[in-house]
Computed example of a mutant assay.
Amino acid sequence: MRQYRLGRVRDQLKALGYGGIVIFDPVNLRYATGSRNMQVFMLRNPGRYVFIPTEGPITLFDFPNCEHLSEGLETIDEVRPAITLSYVASGENLYDNAKEWAKEIADLMAQHAGSNKKLAVDYIPSVGAVELAKQGIDVRDGQEPIEHARSIKNKQEIEAMKISVRTAEEGMIRMQQALEPGITENELWSHLHQVNIAQGGDYVETRLLSSGNRTNPWFQECSDKVINDGELVAFDTDMNGPFGFFTDISRTFLCGDSEPSNEQKRLYQTAYEQIQYNIDLLKPGMTFREYAEKSWKIPDEFFPNRYFTVAHGTGLSGEYPYIVYPQDFEEKGYDGVIQENMVLSVESYIGSPGGKEGVKLEEQLLVTKDGVENFSDFPFEHRLLK
């Protein structure tokens, strides 16, 4: 799997004519090399990065006293100490450290890319970009090659992703079992985290669980609110599970033994109709625009509170592509082609502006040569579908 991923990255670099890439984002770094170290910490601290030439040996720059963490990885040829380009790590020496950092990267480019000065960088502190330019390096966006590399999964990645999904489903079962009137949102949410950590997962990216009137509008974070009998409870797993794979599934539960209201059933059945329609539509060879234009037509009542995508890529996180609603395509969309072995999450949020509650549903799908394969068989709420 590591060799496949590294090969994907290098193929993209070659296609774009780049001499190499510097990767700071710890998710991208893990994808390209299989090496990880304090992944959440590194999301906000530029203390770890890797230089990957399009051809030649790979140099990892790791956090102090962490060189041993990449021993045995065939994707790493050399480990050096990182120069952390942050004020908290460098203080008044930040600009001098940036000059030293840029010279080291420029020397590696000269050694392994020759006269090619085009260097992709996924994310970089501003002082680093300035100093690379002074070294004559032509800095290019590194997100494009990485996102396109990550978008197509091989067999091993697909099997690993299934393990992450099974882990999330076990957490969801625990949540369903624990859901009784009187539990708080935070207490309920903790069950997914516990299962994920116990089974070797990493973390949950968001806190998207809400209940009752907090389900509308969407994106209200989990709180200490007490969940009451008869309330809807909506959540999005957003879970980085075993092997670092992202499980992105959404469900809406009904708390307690009360019969659902007609309005709750209407919302739920509308969201269910949307994702089922868009799942059936999904096939390789469709363009993003075609899929958007043919997707389920959301009623005007629910359009203002719509989710921001109809579907999006999923892998080690939410990733390329984002496919937006047709009404948003000219302003926010971009085109491309849905390909076999992409993994896409199909989304629905249904809630009226000013409405009492809303429903969030989502499925994670492998694009196959004939259509799609659903990674999850976690059931929907039968009480809300009757």
Rank of each mutant, 00 (worst) to 15 (best):
M1F: 14
Q3N: 07
Q3W: 11
Y4K: 04
R8Y: 03
R10F: 13
K14T: 08
N28A: 15
S35I: 15
Q39C: 07
P53L: 12
T54V: 12
I58Y: 13
L60Q: 05
D62Q: 10
C66T: 14
E71H: 14
G72I: 08
I76R: 11
V79L: 08
P81Y: 05
Y95H: 12
D96K: 11
A102L: 05
K103V: 13
K103F: 13
I105L: 11
K117A: 09
K118H: 09
D122E: 07
Y123T: 07
G128H: 08
E131Y: 12
K134R: 15
G136W: 13
I146E: 08
A149G: 04
K153H: 15
K153Y: 06
E157Y: 03
A160W: 15
L192H: 10
T206L: 12
G212L: 03
C222G: 01
D238P: 01
N240L: 10
E259P: 03
E259A: 12
E263G: 09
E263H: 15
L267W: 10
L267S: 01
L282Q: 02
T287S: 15
A292H: 08
L316G: 05
E319N: 14
Y322T: 09
G333V: 06
G336R: 02
V337L: 11
G351W: 11
E357G: 03
F375D: 04
